[in-house]
Every structure is written in structure tokens, then in C-alpha cells.
Amino acid sequence: MPLLILDDLNATFHIAAGDVQAVRGLSLQLEEGESIGIVGESGSGKSAAMLSVMGLLPATCEVSARSIVFNNIELTRIGRRDLRKLLGKDIGMVFQDPMTSLNPLYTIGSQLTESLRLHLRYTPRQARERALELLRMVEIPSPETRLKQYPYELSGGMRQRVMIASAISCNPKLIIADEPTTALDVTIQAQILDLLMSLKQKLNVSIVLISHDLGVITSLCRRILVMYGGMMVETGTTREVFYDARHPYTWGLLRSRPSGSPQTQSADGARGRLVSLPGAPPDMLHPPPGCPFAPRCPHAMRICNEYIPPITDFSSTHAAACHLVYANARLPKKEASHG
């Protein structure tokens, strides 16, 4: 039985201007101890999807799903309070910006012990011992002094380590890391990725890593899910997605970064142009009726603007949602009505 199953997840924000369909029909399965990376641009729905599992989206957002199963419990049928009790313990979250997700008014110690006392009913002394152990696990030097310090006294990398310590404090089965290294410098990012990797092996915890950087995902996950316009466009192992991508958006994503090979610049200094996708991501207030990527897709056909493409499987792990690879494609509306 997989640890997490999402089936046809939808999240819609009701705002004054209308309905923003942040997540549309996302399905996903995650085994115990497995890691998956969700990649996509801002507004592609990658964060909203995971926050809706946690019940952390504001009340203006309507979440619906055929089924959300975590750890054999059907989450769509239980109330918000029970959800909190369940998930605070078994799912840990690491956010992008530790300066805003840690409370500046409380010491590191009191923030680390809070969930231990709440969820595991630890005594103050037990909680303090555990907090020290956690700070050692995330390799923070002189943990006794750190417990008494406030977030502003720590560097960005140290704050992110505290966030990770707090996420693993109740021995969760799953960690959701939402752009955990985006605010950090590369050498500090390398430290944090290294730490997450070793914790994953030590604690056998599953990780959902949300990032816009494929490199970050490759260094931590074996599977990738590519999102665009609130939908899954392609999923597979990192190898399948990197070497055998099937969706035009994935092609664009891979080619819009410099390859890093010396051939990008010829000897006389003439530099090649990057392959860029024209236009901008869709407005989710008025998403296109067909494939969300169709308006920017260099291979778009008429059918792409009319029907949302079905998901085609290439292997047990690799799938893409694109009319180009769909064998049983329907005729476009006009021709179908003529026939």
C-alpha cells in the first residue's frame, strides 16, 4: 500500500476576480521511503497541491478530490481538526524562507519543543533533550547555546537546519520540502541537500521536494513530476524525464538552461542562443480549454486547443499528457461534427 495517494485532486481559489484553478486533476502515488520531485514554474500549482493535502490552504480555497489517502487513512472524510492532529505528527514541512516560517518572537528551543509537547506529550525535560538531539542530527554546532537564541541570530543556512530539525521532530513518515534551498547560496544549498539526503537514508522518510530547479531535484529524488498550468504534464524516473522526455514543455524546460558543456561557446567567443519558450504561463483565472501549454507549444495542433490531452503511459513509471503521443486521438470538434 503506497504511503500517499492523490486521485484527481483539484484546488480552486475563489477570489473577487473569479475562480483561480490552481490545481486541476492531479494524481500521484508515493511509496514508503520513496522521494519524488515536483518541478514547475511559479503558478504551476506545485505548492498549492501539497498544501491542500496538508489542509493548509486558506478557507477561500476549495479543495476536492476523488480520494486522498495518507498512511491508509482517507483524508477527504475527516474534519480539519483531526487532520491537524494526524498530519502535524506524520508529515513534516520545510518551507522556502525560514525567516518568515520561524516565529521571530520565540527562541529556537521553544519552537522545537512545541510540537513535541503537543503531539507526543513530552515533559519539558524530555522535549529539551529531544530538541538537543535534533539539533545535533542537523549538524548545528553548540546546540545548547542555539536553543536559547532567536531566529534572527542565526544565518540563513542555520535557520533552514532548524526548520528541518522541527520537520523531523516527531519522526514523520513524509517530509514536504517546498523550495527548501531557493533562498540560500549555492555552497549552503549543497550543505542542506547533503543533510536532507543523509536524513532520508537514516530515517527512511519519504520526501516530496518542490522546486523550480531540476538540478536540486536530481540530487535528491529518483522520480520527477512536471507540472504546468495546474496539471501534471509528465512524470517518470529522473532518467526517463531527462533522457527520454515526451512532453514539449519538458523539452523546453530542459533546453532553456545552458547545457554546461563547453560547446555552448565557440572559440571566437560567439555564443549560441538558448532555446526559449515564447510567451508566458497561462492565466489560471481563464485557463485555455484544451492543453494548458498549447498557446506556447511549437508543436500545437488544432485538437490541443480544444481537448485536455489524456495521459499516455510509456512504462510503469513514465507517462505524459500530450496529444502528440496519444495513440487513440479523437478528431477535432469541427471535423468530428462533419463526420
Binding site: 549555492v186 538540478g215 540530487s219 531527462f242 554546461g260
Partner: peptide, 15 residues
């Protein structure tokens, strides 16, 4: 050297 090596590689083989 450290700065360059810290950049995560997207290519699984190179990584």
C-alpha cells in the same frame, strides 16, 4: 572549485 562543484547537476549521469 567548491563553488562550481556545489551547483547541482540536472543530468542524472553527470550528477
Amino acid at each position: 572549485e567548491a563553488l562550481m562543484s556545489a551547483v547541482p547537476q540536472a543530468d542524472p549521469d553527470m550528477a
